[in-house]
Design a binder for these strands. Structure first.
Lengths: 177, 177
DNA sequence: GGAATTATGTCAGTACTATTGACGTAATTT
DNA sequence: AAATTACGTCAATAGTACTGACATAATTCC
């Protein structure tokens, strides 16, 4: 149990490098950056007994008030069942309310309450601080270049989800043309 | 059940914006970018019955061959128990081997096998392609600026973990293509 | 040499997020 | 009237994570 079994392959002792032109540096940085990026709100969420799933739901309901359950599922790319418990908890704790759809009464439009809005802001605050600090520390003159890079990392067919957002992404790249 | 309960707060119908100077644009982009970034290897991992945890272990063992279990736990920021099952599976499937530490025989140095090296490369390939494409698409003249930004997003006290990596993260301003 | 500490492995129990599949209900569309 | 859609819910399962406890072997400290 201590050593490798007889049939096992031999250990490779050299570190993986940029062979095949693989960009390990940015792959790793992306991992670490996202890990720490999500750790900020995780602290706050723990106080509520919530997890990341609650955060995501809360975020998008605040960003697109009135979106339906189906739309939310599409943005989050999870299943109805995964959303069910999380959404129910957010409704039960009075962070989100459902309103019957005006045109289609089958639909449930989701809106944040004042409480839900406040929590969404509290969760976003440390993340935004981290981003601002990172932009400054890294001497990024244009934040637009970071924005463009991140957007280009998203699957093209899914970028539509981003563009639907409340805009004001400032100058963005398109300018609505 | 259809509508909101009597005690519930009133729905807020306006979208959350950049109030309080919160950078929702980049917060969202980071979420979408990471979601798609991880979706590439997820496809491949599914064929092996592996998950993201296996990927991370495989990645770091390939990046720092010979690292010990304790070091791996420190990098991944998970507990021993969380690592146990995943590491065992990778060893049983001959992707990783353990070697008794030379100085300290209590330690288990972790090394990839040829099989483990190959899988790590296969998993990194689509991610690297995505990064390269994003750099090109976004017209990022220097990739170093993206690197600096991502590094600045990492908690300062944890940046040591990155700097230990097989170098060429730092001296990377080479433009070997 | 003996005691404390360290590195690792393992067991038991739990939680959260996610999955697929199935079924029911109400509302809309055809 | 029939089919479809939007939503909710139930059951069963999986992957990843957690805490706490305990065992073993090896090293270090006194």
């Amino acid at each position: 149990m201590t050593d490798r079994s007889p049939a096992a392959g031999k250990p490779i002792r050299t570190a993986i490098t940029d062979e095949d032109g693989i960009d390990f540096a940015i792959i790793e940085l992306f991992f670490f950056a996202y890990r720490d990026f999500t750790s900020d709100p995780d602290q706050i969420l723990a106080d509520y007994g919530f997890g990341r799933a609650h955060h995501r739901v809360l975020h998008f309901v605040n960003r697109r008030p009135g979106l339906t359950v189906a739309e939310l599922l599409d943005v989050l790319k999870i299943t109805k069942q995964s959303l069910a418990r999380v959404l129910k908890q957010l409704i039960d704790t009075d962070h989100i309310v459902q309103v019957q759809g005006p045109r289609d009464r089958r639909q449930r439009e989701l809106y944040p309450t004042a409480k839900g809005r406040a929590l969404a802001l509290a969760l976003a605050r440390p993340q935004s601080r981290r981003i601002r600090a990172a932009l400054e520390d890294s001497g990024t003159t244009e934040r637009a270049s970071i924005e463009r890079f991140l957007e280009a990392m998203v699957n093209p067919e899914l970028r539509a989800q981003i563009d639907i957002m409340p805009a004001q992404t400032s100058g963005k790249k398109n300018g609505d043309h």
